[in-house]
Design a protein around this nucleic acid. Structure first.
Length: 919
RNA sequence: GGGCGCUUAGCUCAGUUGGUUUAGAGCGCCUGCCUUACAAGCAGGAGGUCACUGGUUCGAAUCCAGUAGCGCCCACCA
């Protein structure tokens, strides 16, 4: 059987069939009864739903590999592990895509009409949507596909409706007129989170507004009092200067504000100025928002196009004047010359017009951040409009507390602060979008009596006046308004389902930090508000996948890597392992998109190594029945005991690191255990014992150990590399032909076994490895040709070491490439190896390190000195009364333990040193 | 402007509460090997003042302060 395995792993050959088998056997599925009836401990992850029409990218590859590792590991631990998959309708993104399709056809959504447009999007989603879920299967994701959910499905839609109504009834949803972020291209409102600031080199323009003649005296007085923003034109008029980065908005100014405590301008409050171009008169008002230190200390107030100005206007009684159309062209409230002009053209035009009137005060470079639409990157325009908002304050309270009291943990931990800061400064959430694709807002306006109806069921008549003249709010909800319910809407809420009972709350939420606020924070708020409990307790935020130059991978840069291409070239295991081994907690991942082979060689090479180590083991063990490790008992040799002990340590370490999301460490440990300990050392050491002419007992001990260790490797590695491990495990015999789980993915996760620990074997092996490495190094140093075998003379080695070498004599000879190992007690022979140089002369090579008594003495002495220092340090602390009385008990205890252990170790080493001295 | 993080081998990065790490890995590089599991391999090797300065300590890549460079997040500064 093993002979039939090809010497080079061909992932394509094994991955497809294995995944199909897992699906057929329904290993990914979990029924709620497993929890409610059978009492299994649930472990649940809900997938961050990718956009329904998205194509898999490396970020998905990384995130879903992480989730699959956790799910597979917990499943093997015997927990009812459920991974809920699904997709998001992605309001703006999807609508934009289809609008572009229509544009290419020479039409638009307005031409085809709302109903037909929405139908068209559905059509598009049905055609192209969900492909990403198939792609997740290719990387091995073990989601319960029967539960696949879409945010626009009836279940999640019901949840959205229920939540809207409940919040409205609690007065946590309101409609109001505020300055919102408006995308003039998407023609919709955006939330604060959706308007991303982008650093840009802008300009700060200075504009002059002339005072009305009645204020000239006050202006002169201010000017003489040192008000630098006040000046006089050539024609004698006095003016003030305001600064702005958006001069075109001056057409909508309704005032100029100064700080009430600003001495310079106190006398000007109440004065009127002429608003140039617009032909209006506006007042100077006082508001404490104005920072006297910034610029001239005078601010133009444009209430309809700036959130701060809007607030100033509310406080000072200024009326907003809207000057922009939805598409950001100038509207009818501006002078005819500017009407219909694009905002950026208007900017130039306004500046030119002011120049012509001598009212332009120049401009200067000004770096600042400009908000842009996160979907189309158009510069967002603050705009006054009527929108729906969620009052976030009350929702944030428990969500903030959950982080503070440790109910919810963040990995890496520094996100905790970021999260809390956002929660502390929470602002209301604008949830209405002027789109057609999404959840329609469940609000109707009565034409008969102006009643607003918010209902779970579509109303047919007004409950107040009975009128049937009802019109539904035209807007849809922010995409995230369905996403924030995901951990329970996917389980059937608001119905009281078994799934909610069994699987809520979920356990881990793994995602990219970019959507901490968009999604994670809001899910936590929704969890508390609607189910009274956090939706998960662990938040794992992974790094960003970047290219070799550190740039984020993106479609527009063309620097992305297609995970499916990687799977096709090197296999899913290679992809997964490479990502995991690069994904240290809190760090980004760099992959060279121009050298896929280089980028993914760690995973590919390791997968192949596992494959070959497995193949060799299977061939060596052969067809015959195999006993158990327990049965082998005293027959186990040093190398066997060593590798079993190492396996046990690895089990402990790997499990511990999985619990702490240290997946990079897990990958690293398994890599070194499998490649280093198992393949490089153990397999090489046991080769002589596997021959037909080897002593039967020794051969049997090797066989049972091989089966045991390879089985352990398969289990430990399975969450990371599910395919290659399964392929090997399926061919692995069981001890004494015992029954076993029908598949590796449902086999039990190993647990540490104290009886397997063997420090004697570990230290003896360390010495032996050191000897072999020394000899190899010497051979190289003295140019001993490959074909030459030289005797290795070990003079007067410590007893235990002599026995170790003796036990592994054959292996030592083979691995060190020496002809004969001689152990002598005659010190005069020295410790060394005879080597024959290229010219034929024979030299005696003294061996360094473990077998060189003198050097060993030095080494021990150094070690002892160092331990001595440590003991001294610990003891001096313990003698320090301040330390003992003030330090926490645990710390003192640790210090005491330290002193004891190191002293103990020191004694041991001193004994060893005395032993050497006697030789 | 506020907050946070990073700076370790040619490259990309690990290094878990300060002490068995005389600082590690992968890739790359040099030397020798097709040793019947694997050349996607085996063996040996070169390469680092752990950004800089000072401090705490018996002991610092690890803790503290400052300096320089880079990055991220948040923010209403016109």
């Amino acid at each position: 059987m093993a002979d039939s395995l090809p010497p080079r792993l061909d992932p394509a050959l094994i991955e497809g069939p294995l995944y199909r088998e897992w699906m057929e056997r329904k290993y990914f599925q979990v029924a709620p009864e497993a929890v409610t009836r059978d009492g299994l401990d649930p472990f649940v992850i809900v997938i961050p739903p990718p956009n329904v029409t998205a194509v898999l990218h490396m970020g998905h590859g990384l995130n879903n590999t992480i989730q699959d590792v956790l799910i597979r590991w917990r499943r093997m631990q015997g927990r009812a592990s459920l991974w809920v998959p699904g997709t998001d309708h992605a309001g703006i993104a999807t609508q934009n895509v289809v609008e572009r399709l229509l544009a290419a056809e020479g039409t638009s959504r307005h031409d085809v009409g709302r109903e037909a447009f929405v139908e068209r999007v559905w059509e598009y989603v049905r055609e192209t949507g969900g492909a990403i879920l198939e792609q997740l299967k290719a990387i091995g994701s073990s989601c319960d596909w029967e539960r696949t959910c879409f945010t626009l499905d009836s279940g999640p839609s019901t949840a959205v409706r229920e939540v809207f109504v409940r919040l409205y009834e609690k007065d946590l949803i309101y409609r109001g007129e505020y300055i919102i972020n408006w995308c003039p291209r998407c023609l919709t409102a955006l939330s604060n989170e959706e308007a991303e600031g982008e650093e840009a080199d802008g300009k700060l323009y200075h504009l002059h507004y002339p005072f009305q003649e009645s204020a000239w005296d006050a202006a002169r007085a201010a000017s003489e009092g040192g008000a630098e923003a006040v000046g006089r034109l050539e024609d004698g008029r006095w003016f003030l200067t305001v600064s702005t980065t958006r001069p075109e908005t001056m057409l909508g100014d309704t005032g100029v504000a100064v700080n009430p405590d600003d001495e310079r301008y106190r006398g000007l409050v109440g004065a009127d100025v002429d608003l140039p171009l617009a032909g209006r008169t506006i007042p100077v008002v006082a508001d404490s928002f104005v920072d006297p230190e910034f610029g001239s200390g005078m601010v133009k107030v444009t209430p309809a196009h700036d959130p701060n100005d809007f607030e100033i206007a509310q406080r000072t009684g200024l009326e907003p004047i809207d000057v922009l159309n939805p598409d950001a062209s100038m509207n009818e409230n501006v002078p005819e010359a500017f009407r219909g002009m694009d905002r950026f053209d208007a900017r130039t035009a306004v500046v030119e017009a002011l120049k012509a009137q001598g009212l332009f005060g120049g401009s200067e470079a000004h770096a600042h951040s400009i908000p842009k639409c996160y979907r189309c990157h158009t510069v967002v325009e603050p705009r006054l409009s009527e929108q729906w908002f969620v009052r976030m304050g009350p929702l944030a309270e428990p969500a903030l507390e959950a982080s503070r009291n440790g109910t919810i943990n963040f990995t890496p931990v520094h996100w905790k602060k970021v999260y809390e800061r956002w929660m502390e400064n929470i602002r209301d959430w604008c949830i209405s979008r002027q789109l057609w694709w999404g959840h329609r807002i469940p609000v109707w306006y009565c034409g008969g009596c102006a009643e607003t109806i918010v209902a779970r069921e579509d109303p047919t008549e007004c409950p107040s006046c009975g009128s049937q003249d009802l019109e539904q709010d035209p807007d849809v909800l922010d995409t995230w308004f369905s996403s924030w319910l995901w951990p329970f809407s996917t389980l059937g809420w608001p119905d009281e389902t078994d799934d909610v009972d069994a699987f809520y709350p979920t356990n881990v939420l793994s995602t990219a930090p970019e959507i901490l606020f968009f999604w994670v924070a809001r899910m936590i708020m929704a969890g508390y508000e609607f189910l009274g409990e956090a939706p998960f307790t662990e938040v794992y935020l992974h790094g960003t996948v970047r290219d070799r130059r550190g740039r984020k991978m993106s479609k527009s840069l063309g620097n992305g890597i297609d995970p499916l291409e990687v799977v096709g070239l090197f296999g899913a295991d290679a992809l997964r392992f490479t990502l995991l081994s690069a994904a240290a907690v809190g760090t980004d991942i760099q992959l060279d998109h121009e050298d896929l082979e280089g980028a993914f060689s760690p995973g590919r090479n390791f997968a192949n190594k596992v494959w070959n180590a497995g193949r060799f083991t299977l061939m060596s063990v052969g067809e015959g029945p195999v006993g158990s490790v327990a049965g082998a008992g005293a027959g186990l040799e040093l190398a066997d005991r060593w590798i079993l002990s190492r396996l046990d340590r690895t089990v402990e370490k790997v499990t511990e690191d999985l619990e702490r999301f240290r997946l990079h460490e897990v990958a690293d440990e398994l890599y070194h255990f499998v490649w280093g300990d198992f393949a490089d050392w153990y397999l090489e050491l046991v080769k002589p014992r596997l021959r037909d002419d080897a002593p039967a007992e020794s051969r049997e001990a090797a066989r049972v150990t091989l089966v045991e260790v390879l089985g352990g490797i398969c289990r430990l590695l399975h969450p990371l590399m599910p395919f290659v491990t399964s392929a090997i495990w399926d061919r692995l015999p069981t001890p004494n032909g015992a029954d076993r789980p029908e598949a590796l993915m449902v086999a039990p996760w190993p647990t540490p076994d104290a009886a397997r620990r063997d420090e004697e074997a570990e230290s003896a092996m360390t010495d032996l490895q050191e000897l072999i490495v020394q000899v190899r190094s010497l051979r190289k140093e003295y140019n001993v040709p490959e074909g030459h075998r030289v005797p290795l003379v070990l003079a007067s080695p410590p007893d235990i070491f002599a026995r170790t070498v003796e036990a592994q004599r054959e292996s030592v000879e083979r691995l060190a490439r020496v002809g004969e190992v001689r152990i002598e007690t005659d010190e005069s022979a020295g410790a060394g190896a005879h080597a024959v140089l290229k010219n034929g002369t024979e030299v005696f090579v003294p061996l360094k390190g473990v077998i060189d008594v003198v050097k060993e003495r030095d080494r021990l002495q150094t070690e002892i000195d160092r331990l001595g220092d440590q003991v001294k340090g610990a003891r001096s602390k313990l003698e320090n009364e301040n330390f003992v009385s003030r330090a926490p008990e645990a710390v003192v205890a640790r210090e005491r333990a330290k002193a004891d252990t190191f002293a103990e170790q020191m004694d041991k080493l001193e004994a060893k040193l005395r032993g050497l001295a006697e030789v």
